[in-house]
Structures are given as C-alpha cells and as structure tokens.
Nucleic acid binder design. Structure first.
Length: 487
RNA sequence: GACCCUAUCGUCUAAUUGGUUAGGACAGCACCCUCUCAAGGUGUCAACACGGGUUCGAGUCCCGUUAGGGUCGCCA
C-alpha cells in the first residue's frame, strides 16, 4: 500500500520549530518510501485564525524544500484540503457515527457543563462530564435539531473495557475506556473539532501514516474507537517526543521562543535549521550528522525516531549553521552578506574581498556587522593592545613597527596594491629586513588599522582593503598614541 | 488527583538487540598550525537516575522508587 502522510497545520501565525520538525518527519516518512506528502489546512477554530498564516506555511515549506503532492494550492483527488471547506462532509459523517452508535447529539449549554465542573470541584472529585443528552433517542434528538435547536455531537464511549494500539515509536499502549472523555466532535457552529476532523480527513484522504506530537498519545484510543465504529482501517501511528526549551518547558511560540522565521531573520540558513532540527529526535544510528534533504529522503527511517524529549541547543545550531555557511560558494555567501554590510559599511572597500575574509569566520550572518564595525571608523582603543605576549611585542617594538610600516606604505605604488599577494609581499619583506618576527611587525600594524583585539582581517588584508591613504592615517594615529604614552 | 508516556556525558545521541576500556557530535579545557580571530589538526574532561530481581553475564529484560513530560477545552 502506498505510504501517504500529511502535514496539517493550523494557520495561527509563524511556523514554530516543533511544527516544522513534524512536517519534516512527515515528508521524509513519505518520501523515503516513495509515497505522497499531503498538506491540509486545519482552520476549524475561527477564533485563532490569523490572516496571512497560510501564506507563511507555503513560504516556509518552500524555503526548507518540502514539496507537497496534494494540497489547497496544488489540488489533488481528495480535496478540498482546507477543513473549513469540508463542513458538509463532517456533518454527514457525524450523523453517520450517531447512527452507528459511536456518537450522540448533545444540547447542553456551556454553562451547564461549567456547572457540573464546579460542583465536582467543590465536592473534590475529579470532573467527568455526565451528559444527560445520552438518554435521548436519536429520533427525539433529530426532531429538536429539525426544530432549530443548537446542538453538538459528542463521542459515545462504552466505559467497560480497554482499547490498545501500537505506535511505531512508543510501542503498545493500552488504556481503559472509562478514563476517556466523551469529547465534542462537531461544535455548535457546525465545524468539527480536531478530534473528529482528523479521523474523517485522514481516512478520506487515505493517510497511511499519522505523525503528530506525543500529546496526542493519550487521546489516540478515542480516535481508534471512531475508526472501529466506522469500520475503517486504523492508520500507522508515529508519535513524536516534544522539543524542549529547557528541562521543564516545551519550546513554544507562546513563550516567545524563536520561530523558523525568527531564525532566518537572524541569519541562520534554512538548510542548517532543517539539518539541526532533524537531529532533535532522530538519528541515522551512525556518526553522521550533516545531511542534505536529498540524502534524508533516502536514509530517513522511523526506527531512528527517539521517544524522549530533546532540548533545543542554540549552541549546536550555531555551529551547524557555521558548517553550512563555510560550505557556501563564495559568490553565494557574498550575496547573502550584502544586506548585512548595507548599514555597517559605508566606506568604499572591496566587499567581495571582505566577504572572503568574513565567510570562514562567522557562524550566523548577523555576526557580520560587529565583525566589520572597524571599517568605517577606527574605534578608540587602548595602547595596551600593542603589547601582545604571544607576538612578543612591546610598546617600543610596536612603535618601531608602525614607523617602518608608515615608510613602506607611503612608498607603495598602485602596482603594490594590485592584489592581496602584492601587498603581502611588500609587508612581509619588512620583518625579514628588520630581523623581527612576523608577528612583531604585523600585530601592531593590524592593531593600528583596526583598533580591535580580533578582526576577520589580518594586517595584510586590512592594508589592502583600506588602501594607501586610510592605512597611513591609521598608522600615524597609532604612532601618535604610542609616542604620547612614552612621553 | 486520575490516566498515559519518558529516563545514557552539561546538551543532541550510538551501543550489531543480554557479552563494549559505553562510541560520535556540540559546548569546555590543553596543545599544534598561524600576522589577530576563526577554521583545521591532535588530545582531554565528562554519562548508563536509584533500589531490587531474572541471568554465568544487564545500559539493554521484569518490578518498584524517584524525577520529568503529556492528557483530562465547543484549541489543535
């Protein structure tokens, strides 16, 4: 039988990380088996609906390379793929389920239910809704409905017995039916709840593998009761452990945790984000960690999914993003870096050369502005910086280095600035001539040019980028500072 | 509270399904390389939650304890 999985998000805003991982796994389960991946929009809660959220879903899926075979925008044989457009279908199946004894009509108001709940609370006993409408005959109930009375459809569960099911990740789970709630299937606005819509849609859309968060583990028996009542085949379940922010809290949008969009805005690459979150709850069972989507489509398997929660580690994401950044073709990196230079670098320098210096040195793109902030203006710096133990520099050596650098740079011709190699040749000749260590000369020069303890450029790159005039200005400033300190 | 689920380095995880000096990655530390910082290389620190069983042998199976997560909405 063909493997068919579905991603069924609610359009409630940005795509959070947990959702994205679920989508990824769903996609990979289907693709690794040569199956189909379906997108379905679950918009049955009109109160939570956020305009534009569906577009965010499309955009995100495109960015991470998840292509759905069926969905609202691409169509398919089992549409419509938006739940709010399937009203009539849910009503039909709800009535059918009532006929089959798996559900009943309920005319209780929310106030009445609340009253029962309060009474239980006061009595100190656990609340379980006892629905007076269960006593109504179907015919009687339908008369009231025909008369225009508001109603809901509730699941009917026989409290005697147990239900069990097999989950690919969690194994065999058994629950006593008396612990199950007879939840609402069809709301008084005529739209289904998740509990019902999922069962109906997954069946009608021929979904073979249901992947979802493990918060559904304990309600899965209720769904199976419905499948059974309808006489439908139960899908293969794959429940997923949560992604945590820390030991106690789930990663969630409500806590203000980063969404996929937030990470992209910070300069994380979609490929890196995907690679990282795939690993939160799944492993290839070998030592490999870097995977392209194409590779994942080949090697992903359900057996590699874990059952315990995983804490989202921003540090490792950063590292992994760095791996992807470094692997970028230089032109591509330059293109991505350009927006970050826009406000940070006003001076006219060769940005392509700058990119070559920066690329191996950043993990996340938003580190760029700070890394290059010495270019427009020389920061105020302390002359202690000229003393570097490892480079074996002293204020005296630094001064000598700078004075020599001044002479050399002054004498440099256009030809000397023609390439990085040329600059390199000129500057490296100096310490040799003076009998200094390279560092003793180059460290002071870089310090004078950048005013920073560490920079993505060395002395050679700095001189090349700044050109003759600016280099001289900064060297002279350094000489001044050192002289002032000596006096 | 009832029910369900989970438990390997600080973090993500592996362990041919009962036989390991418990492996890898991030982070940390040290060294090498080096004109700074990165990157890269080498090395190092670091874990089977606890207690009982079963077994010649348990990280792996069973029971309990503890700790954590989830469900108990006309949300999904």
């Amino acid at each position: 039988m063909e493997v068919r999985s579905r991603f069924a998000p609610s359009p409630t805003g940005y795509m959070h990380i947990g959702n994205l991982r679920t989508a990824l796994y769903e996609y990979l389960v289907a693709k690794s088996a040569g199956g189909k991946f379906i997108l379905r929009i679950e918009d049955t809660d009109q109160e939570r609906y956020v305009a534009g959220a569906v577009d965010i879903i499309y955009k995100t899926m495109k960015m991470v390379g998840l292509k759905h075979d069926e969905g609202p925008d691409v169509g398919g044989p089992y549409g419509p793929y938006v739940q709010s457009e399937r009203r009539a279908i849910y009503k039909e199946y709800a009535d059918k389920l009532v006929d089959l004894g798996g559900a009943h009509y309920c005319f209780c108001s929310e106030e009445e239910i609340e009253k029962q709940r309060k009474a239980c609370e006061e009595a100190g006993i656990p609340f379980k809704f006892r629905d007076p409408c269960k006593k109504l005959s179907v015919a009687e109930a339908r008369e009231r409905i025909a008369a225009g009375e508001k109603y809901t459809v509730r699941q009917t569960i026989d409290p005697h017995g147990t239900v069990s099911f097999d989950d690919c990740v969690y194994g065999h789970v058994t629950v006593e039916t008396k612990t199950l709630d007879e939840g609402i299937l069809l709301k008084s606005d005529g739209l289904p709840t998740y509990n019902f819509a999922n069962v109906v849609d997954d069946h009608l859309m021929k979904i073979s593998h249901v992947l979802r968060g493990n918060e559904y583990l304990s309600s899965t028996p209720k769904y199976n009761l419905m499948y059974q009542a309808f006489g439908w085949e139960i899908p293969t379940y794959v429940h997923l452990p949560p992604i945590m922010k820390d030991e106690h809290n789930k990663l969630s949008k409500r806590n203000g945790d980063a969404s996929f969009q937030d990470l992209v805005a910070k300069g994380y690459l979609p490929e890196a984000i995907v690679n990282y979150i795939i690993l939160l709850g799944w492993s290839a069972k070998n030592d490999e960690e870097i995977f392209s989507m194409a590779e994942l489509e080949k090697i992903f398997n359900i057996e590699g999914i874990n059952k315990s929660p995983a804490i989202f580690d921003g540090e490792k994401l950063k590292w992994m993003n760095g791996v992807y950044v470094r692997a970028l073709p230089p032109e591509k990196f330059h293109e991505l870096a350009l927006p970050y230079y826009k406000d940070a670098v006003k001076r006219k320098v060769d940005l392509e050369v700058l990119s070559k210096c920066v690329q191996p040195r950043v993990n996340v793109l938003n580190e760029i502005p700070e890394a290059v902030d010495f270019i427009d203006e020389l920061p105020e710096y302390d002359i202690d910086m000229y003393v570097h133990k490892k480079m074996k520099t002293t204020p005296e050596i630094a001064l000598k280095a700078l004075e020599e650098a001044k002479n050399v740079v002054e004498a440099m011709t256009d030809a000397d600035f023609a390439s990085m190699d040329a600059v390199h040749a000129v500057l490296l000749a100096v310490p040799e001539k003076l009998g200094m260590k390279n560092g003793q000369f180059l460290w002071p020069v870089r310090t004078a040019l950048t005013g920073k303890q560490c920079t993505p450029v060395g002395a050679v790159e700095a001189v090349y980028l700044f050109g003759k005039d600016e280099s001289l200005k900064r060297i002279e400033k350094g000489i001044e500072k050192l002289k002032a300190a000596q006096a």
